[in-house]
Design a protein around this nucleic acid. Sequence first.
DNA 1: CTGAAAGCGCTTACAG
DNA 2: CTGAAAGCGCTTACAG
Lengths: 343, 343
Amino acid sequence: MKPKKRVTIYDIAERLNITASSVSRALNNSNHVNEETKKLVLKTAAELNYKRNVLASNLRMGKSHTIGVVVPRINQNIFSNVIAGLEEVTNQQNYNMIICQSNESVAKEIKCVNALVNQHVDCIVISMSVETEDISHLRNVIDHGIQLIQFDRVATELETLKVINDNEQASMEAVEHLIKQGYKRIALLEGPQNLNIFKQRRDGYLKALKKHNIAVADELIMKNAWTKELGATATRQLLSLPQPPDAIFASTSDFSALGVLDVAHDMNIQVPSQLGICGYANEAFTELTNPSITTIDQFSMHMGRTIANLYFDELNNSEVAVTPKVISLKPELIIRSSTLRKG
Amino acid sequence: MKPKKRVTIYDIAERLNITASSVSRALNNSNHVNEETKKLVLKTAAELNYKRNVLASNLRMGKSHTIGVVVPRINQNIFSNVIAGLEEVTNQQNYNMIICQSNESVAKEIKCVNALVNQHVDCIVISMSVETEDISHLRNVIDHGIQLIQFDRVATELETLKVINDNEQASMEAVEHLIKQGYKRIALLEGPQNLNIFKQRRDGYLKALKKHNIAVADELIMKNAWTKELGATATRQLLSLPQPPDAIFASTSDFSALGVLDVAHDMNIQVPSQLGICGYANEAFTELTNPSITTIDQFSMHMGRTIANLYFDELNNSEVAVTPKVISLKPELIIRSSTLRKG
DNA sequence: CTGAAAGCGCTTACAG
DNA sequence: CTGAAAGCGCTTACAG
């Protein structure tokens, strides 16, 4: 089947006996064009069902009206929500999004970022893979004059726009909540410390203990416990200590909290009376477990919207920007049964 | 900061004292170019860190190497998995994806589809919104010579490539499983019947009853029960019947199955002994509820990969295509505690 | 095998 | 306010 021929500005120009220049100006609402002409052009464009050829326009303007997004995994709660939020705003602004997943691999992340640069995207929105340490591929983005926005998992040392969560504060509140519930030996499941988010959550934990004059017990801090399986393994280790913890803060994710809960069930340990459990991320399932799991909501869809709005704000007042803006969102502690042993 | 100047084919041509034509031919691995020249060009391109300007190439070729995706919701399990699967393949092929969400609204869906047509995408992958009845916006896609691939929620009457699940078969297996577990009065929570997937699930239900000579009781078929809340409401109604059901097949989603389970808990009805419950979609939480919920897995990530592969296969043998291909994937019944009352 | 030229459809600096 | 012209960076039919 022969595809429909698309209408160009030349077709409109011909109809009205003017040049393509004027048509273009009218369509772009330039003020170097007669009001009458403008009206006529718009009317004719509508009649002929004209659609601007974005490919041509993009080439000419040297920008693609496209935002590239790189996340570790598209189908992970926080990221699919951030993407949904981004889509909402970018779509409204007639911008496109190209989405890539790094699968938590630096190599793939570099490949994605370079492909996006190559695509002449106007902006790259990224949350780093767990492996990422060297960030020269991100510097390269900036060198190409492409706006870079980091979110959630960011490289602090790189001066870019950032949208982050106040992980330290949230983590501190979670631990204080545990303390107020009377838990005395609170263990921490922490994630890879090269990711800033996990470092901050650790800092929040330490800060809360310090504030309440509780000594830090190194054997209660479990490294790299950021999946359900690793969370379960760490929990078994913790519970076999001479002085086991009476609460576990799975600061890495609700999945690792789920691992804790599983082990508790297996070992017939009562939650929350014998063991308190707090997760991170407010995954849908935390409401459904038995008992339901206390966790921290990050409002990820809102985060997505915030990132997109930040981009468009910067775009419109590009001159004003003095220092790289950082927007810190406040997560919220969601208290559920797994930590409620007092009223 | 001044952005890096990008290297063009003219820079390479100048270096080698040949024309841009030859450079282009060499880079595109045309066979109308000397082997020596080709090698030289590729070497120089690498040295200068040349990257093809896709914007220009796309304009010239009249194609964008981009696939547009329209789904009801990005952050819904099945769709975010399909997208992840799509990304895996398209990324490998150096294609881009533009993703839109219709939010279950036809108006938004039409807007998305038109925007994608306008973007000159090479292919549109779509799963319809619940509201969609008129499909002229999809016909319009085909009229523009753009490949259209429907998946999951498809308009059967429209002859396009399709990747679907065998909903009828899966539904029938689920109901047969319930029958074999000794359930006698099996209720159905069904979804909006303008969506083919829900019609097929209903058909599977009817087929299973017929096969086992069980009379259909109209009062056991509840319309439009496709969210947790609607599922709960329908369940309350069902359980207050003079002859209430002893099993409920929430064919619309696991969320509605969750609504059923909630009501059962509230009314102190034992699952699975007094009431069997089967959901649809194998959402992560179905494993975690108490009891865990029997459901149907759709392998959505695999579905995404299948769609992308279908597109590239067609692209490469565009001449061979005789009749619009339909790929039907077989979902799998996942049997869990909520329906197991025999061994 | 290679070059010269045209063209994809737009936008915009330059004249008038 | 409008037109004529150049150019974004490629690709490809046409000559040779």
